[in-house]
Simulated assay, not measured.
Amino acid sequence: MIAYTLKIRNKVTSRDIVVSYRATMDDEQKDLTTGSMKFNLETANVNYLTNSQFVLGIIETVILRLNQECKLDRIEVDQSANRLQLQVPKLSEFRTYIQSHHLLSHVAQSCVANGHQAINVSISTPFKLG
């Protein structure tokens, strides 16, 4: 199993919105996949970009790009310091999305007392000063 972290970064300038992502192996900073999307601030569908479905779509894209040996175990969403914050999905919304899109075999899981599997992925938003 290859455990990896997905880092999503949101950067907003006076003209553009740039959302980039990077999946790296947990034990080393080796890139598994990277990508970015750039939107013109005047023409972008800001309602969609600031909805949690946008972030969930990025997560699904990365999961499907990697083979099943790769297991997502951590998500970090680095927000823009100014306006247009991405809506980070709650763990319950993330779990529902993963289950309904049949992606369970691509995420870290642990066995719970009753023998069922539980999704074991953490989602964080690192705090930055300045």
Score class of each variant (00 low, 15 high):
T43W: 11
T13A: 07
Y4N: 11
N47V: 15
N120E: 15
N10S: 15
V88W: 01
I123L: 09
L72Y: 09
A108S: 10
F127N: 10
L56S: 04
F54D: 00
S92C: 07
S20W: 03
D16M: 11
E93T: 09
V46G: 04
V46I: 15
V121T: 05
D26G: 07
A108I: 04
A108C: 08
A81P: 06
T50K: 07
T13Q: 12
E28R: 03
M1G: 14
N51S: 15
F54I: 02
T43G: 06
F39V: 11
T13Y: 02
R22F: 13
L91K: 13
V121K: 01
T43M: 08
A44L: 08
Y48F: 04
V19D: 00
N47D: 14
L86C: 03
T33Q: 10
V18Y: 00
C70Q: 01
Y21W: 15
K128P: 06
T13C: 11
I2V: 12
C111K: 07
L72H: 04
A81E: 09
V77F: 03
Q68H: 08
Q109I: 13
K7D: 14
Q29F: 09
T34K: 00
Q109S: 13
C70E: 01
S52H: 11
Y48M: 06
L56N: 06
R15I: 04
V46C: 08
M1I: 08
E42T: 13
V62I: 08
L41A: 08
H101E: 05
T96R: 04
D73I: 12
Q79K: 01
T33P: 09
D78T: 09
N120C: 10
S110H: 12
P126H: 14
A113E: 09
S14T: 13
K71V: 09
K7M: 11
D31V: 10
N40H: 05
Q87E: 14
N10R: 11
E93C: 05
Y4C: 10
E28Q: 12
T96S: 10
G57M: 05
T33K: 10
Y48D: 07
L56G: 02
S92E: 07
N10C: 12
V121Q: 02
A113N: 15
L41N: 04
D73T: 14
L72R: 02
S100E: 09
F54K: 03
R83T: 12
T125C: 08
L84C: 12
N47C: 07
N82T: 11
L84P: 08
F127G: 11
L64W: 10
E60A: 04
L6C: 03
T50F: 06
Q68M: 15
F39Y: 14
L64F: 14
D16N: 13
E76H: 05
A118S: 12
K128Y: 11
I75A: 08
E93L: 05
